[in-house]
Structure formats: structure tokens, C-alpha cells
């Protein structure tokens, strides 16, 4: 892999010490800037968690009070009394995990084929994937619902899962990654008499581990967040997902903010923990695959 951009040659006269000092200084600067950004990200969360412990009167007081007078669990009790939180949480987790996994299984091979292979109808098929990204869901939702009814899937998890297996988003994301992989390794597999399948399985997939982990996560979160489609295709309350449950604290004329924040807090913590486990695959895999450099 050669880069053509010329780098200005400069005589090697720098002293190592000054370089190191400057590096340390820039590290401190980076840390400072990143911390500032992190505070901006975290402040709303702090507010969310604190609100979860406030009484409605405290939550709506103006100017705001940061700390509740008494750390009360009443909002959490009310949350569990009003919606079957645990069941909704469980439903959301397993359907999102399953959908994300099926998503990758269908999208990774397709993305690879679109990025690397040549075949008739390629543009058309890839175009349909892109098209699915560009039409607003507001108008396709009714036709899809009618289809689900025809198939007899209404109020079943099938209706939730099957239409989400294929995703233009995931295909496009992985397509971009496969495209930027160096060809040389796969070519050598092919020249050695290996099939495209071997090239995909033993070269491209391992190399794209980081991208696949990212795509899986995005897909998981996409489903974790979605509420309109689950609400429409599922009817039984024992099948309901978490976002729909949280939404029920928003009434026509009022929102119960403290209970909503209790729900948001509880639903965030486990995903953060899950994310911490997943995230090391997001970049490390790409480094350790040994394909680069």
C-alpha cells in the first residue's frame, strides 16, 4: 500500500526532549478538550438521574433544584406499578439482539457481494437497498402493515423481526467498509484457487470485524429505540417493548417527567454496561486482524 502524497523532507535535527515535552503538553490539551466535551454529554444524564429521585413538585420547581430533598424511590415504584417494566425490558433486549444478529447475517454477505463481485443486476439490487433508506417510513408503514396482516403475522414477534432482517442501512455501512479493504489479500486467495466464499470467510470477514461490531451495535440500538412499528404490529401488552411503555407516561395534556426519567435511567444503565462489553471489539479487532499495515 503506497501513498502518493509527498511529505516534505526535513533534516533530522530536532532534540528528542523538546519533542517529548510538546507531546506531553498536547496530551494534556487533548485531555482537557475531551473532558469539556464529556461534561457537555454527561450533564443531561446527571439531570435525568437526579430527576428520577425527585417528587413532581421538586422536578417542576423553578429555578431548578439540583438535589432532591429526600432520595425517594417512589418514582421507581410507580414505574413498576404502571407498566410491566421487567417484561418489556426483556422483550426489548431479546428482540433487538436477535434482529441485529440476523441483520448482520443477511447484510454482511450481501454487502461483500456488492462491494467486490460483479454480476448482472448488481446496480438494480444495490439500488433497491439504497432506495429503502430514502423513502420516509411515514408512508410505507401502512402498506407494510397490510402485508403483515395478509401473512397472518399480526401481534406476533415474527411481525416485528422478519421485516427488520434485511436492512439497507447495514448493507450500505458494510459495503463502504468492504470497499476500503485492500484487495491484494483476497486476490491472492483467488489466485491460489480459492473461491469467493473462502475469500469472504477467511479474509474479508475477519478484517471487517470492527465494522461488523459497529453495524451490529447500530442495528441493536435502532431496534432498541424504535417504537412506532412495534406499537403498530404488536397488540398484546405482554409483548410490548420498552419505548412504548415509557411513552405511556406522556398523556394528552401532561407528562409525568419524574417517572419517565426513572424509566429512562433504568433502561440506560444495562445498555451502557452491555456497550462496555461490546465496544472493545469495535476497534481492537480491526487492529489485531493483522491485515493492515
Amino acid at each position: 500500500m503506497t501513498r502518493s502524497e509527498p511529505l516534505r523532507p526535513e533534516p533530522l535535527t530536532r532534540r528528542d526532549a523538546s519533542l517529548k515535552a510538546r507531546a506531553r503538553g498536547s496530551q494534556a490539551g487533548l485531555l482537557g478538550l475531551l473532558t469539556l466535551g464529556a461534561v457537555a454529554i454527561l450533564l443531561p444524564f446527571v439531570w435525568m438521574i437526579l430527576t428520577a429521585f425527585k417528587t413532581p413538585a421538586e422536578a417542576y420547581t423553578w429555578p431548578p433544584i439540583w438535589l432532591p430533598a429526600k432520595w425517594s424511590l417512589a418514582n421507581f415504584t410507580q414505574l413498576f406499578d404502571t407498566i410491566p417494566f421487567a417484561r418489556m425490558f426483556f422483550n426489548s433486549v431479546w428482540t433487538s439482539v436477535l434482529i441485529a444478529s440476523l441483520n448482520i447475517l443477511s447484510a454482511a454477505p450481501a454487502a461483500y457481494a456488492f462491494a467486490r463481485l460483479r454480476f448482472p443486476g448488481q446496480g438494480l439490487f444495490f439500488g433497491s437497498h439504497l432506495l429503502s433508506l430514502m423513502i420516509p417510513w411515514q408512508v410505507t408503514i401502512i402498506p407494510v402493515f397490510l402485508l403483515i396482516r395478509q401473512l397472518g403475522w399480526y401481534d406476533s414477534f415474527t411481525a416485528l423481526i422478519v421485516p427488520s432482517i434485511a436492512s439497507g442501512f447495514t448493507v450500505f455501512l458494510l459495503f463502504q467498509f468492504f470497499r476500503s479493504l485492500p484487495r491484494s489479500l483476497e486476490e491472492s486467495v483467488l489466485i491460489d484457487g480459492g473461491s469467493w466464499f473462502t475469500a469472504l470467510r477467511h479474509v474479508a470477514l475477519p478484517a471487517a470485524k470492527g465494522a461488523i461490531a459497529a453495524a451490529w451495535l447500530f442495528s441493536f440500538l435502532g431496534n432498541w429505540q424504535s417504537f412506532i412499528w412495534p406499537l403498530i404490529v404488536l397488540q398484546s401488552s405482554e409483548k410490548m417493548l420498552l419505548p412504548v411503555g415509557l411513552l405511556s407516561f406522556q398523556n394528552q395534556y401532561s407528562v409525568n417527567i419524574p417517572v419517565l426519567m426513572a424509566g429512562a435511567t433504568l433502561s440506560t444503565l444495562p445498555t451502557v454496561i452491555a456497550y462496555m462489553f461490546v465496544q472493545r471489539y469495535l476497534t481492537d479487532a480491526a487492529i489485531t486482524s493483522g491485515l493492515k499495515g
Binding site: S106, A107, A110, S128, S132, L147, P163, A166
Partner: peptide, 16 residues
């Protein structure tokens, strides 16, 4: 390779 994804896209995106 593209069959599963394309089937899904045709049925639940292109058709609607």
C-alpha cells in the same frame, strides 16, 4: 450472497 437481504428488501421495502 445477496439473496436473503435482497428478498427482505424486496418484500418489506420495494413492494411497499
Amino acid at each position: 450472497l445477496i439473496l436473503p437481504s435482497t428478498l427482505g428488501i424486496l418484500a418489506f421495502a420495494v413492494l411497499p
